[in-house]
Design a protein around this nucleic acid. Structure first.
Lengths: 166, 166
DNA sequence: CTCCTATTTGAGATATTAATGAACAATTTG
DNA sequence: CAAATTGTTCATTAATATCTCAAATAGGAG
């Protein structure tokens, strides 16, 4: 495979993957582009490369910065903003886990806490409370486990967790 | 909080949470309903309870069965299909992880393998290959780790992984 | 086989989400 | 200050995804 072909395929598919991840297509594509880039990109360069509008690039760059997946780079004597991706894969995934935990797990924990304040009066409410307790136990454990993962500096998958892999 | 209020809130919010999880709102609501139910439900009962159409219920029940989150229950002398949710939370989450792994991780692994078949010719392609190799290493480790999680019968979060929690 | 009930499917309607393009704001330069 | 450049916001448009309704299909009971 030639470089250009591989690059195009990677960016295109990375964008599609994004949609399965709580990241929209354009955001994924910009991230893919910057991830394999050897230099920083401006808004205009991204617009040209991906054939998308200025507004779209701007919004998605903000999201990517907010997710901690890219950062703005100032250049001496240039008014333009340049952007570069975080290249350490472990950090990339930690950031993603962090965000997804906020978006997926925390609202669940909040909901469960809220509806758990109930006294059982019959079979249905007993069953309900029982399920809420199990969900609370599970979700809090998952939250803590993911916290440890996110807060670990080293790539825990590659290092100390090796014993769990074949 | 009264039972009915808690139940309604749980079902409604469980559906909204679903949308952050690759599960649509109705699918989430049906799952929530069955999860806290003390008895099996027919299509008609679900239609009535959630005020949604027959086609919608049918499609989402099929998806839920396909995700391994509910199952069809046959009743003697009754032609209707009844459905009941998997109540073991650990199993529920294992099923979800399994599906999401297929949907999120596997296409990524496939992509990376595909575009990795490239010989470096310059700085850009070298950087590209380097990144693909890192992604490959990471994603394969993640895949194996999640496999172990999914294949473990016991609730690994609650039992042997305790040491990683505070 | 025919009737009856339940389930499935598919086309069109509706709702949700994302992208564009143009207006506006901010900043720099001459 | 005026013009030019860059960045941001947001109403409109476009694209996706989901839901409904109704017709088609399946399959058991008589």
């Amino acid at each position: 495979m030639q470089y250009q072909e591989g690059k195009d395929k990677f960016i295109k598919t990375w964008g599609e993957l994004g949609t399965n991840w709580g990241i929209n297509k354009t955001m994924g594509q910009i991230h893919g582009l910057l991830l394999i880039a050897t230099e920083e990109y401006t808004t205009d360069a991204i617009m040209e490369e991906l054939h998308i509008s200025r507004g779209n690039v701007n919004m998605n760059l903000r999201s990517l910065v907010e997710w901690g997946l890219i950062s703005k780079v100032e250049k001496q004597g240039d008014r333009k903003d340049y952007y570069a991706a975080e290249k350490d894969i472990w950090t990339v995934f930690r950031q993603i886990i962090k965000k997804r935990k906020e978006k997926e797990l925390h609202p669940m924990i909040h909901l469960i806490e809220e509806v758990s304040e109930m006294n059982p009066t019959d079979e249905k409410s007993s069953e309900f409370i029982k399920m809420m307790n199990e969900l609370a136990l599970f979700s809090n454990k998952a939250d803590k486990t993911l916290d440890n993962l996110v807060n670990s500096k080293a790539n825990i998958l590659v290092s100390s967790y090796l014993k769990f892999m074949r």
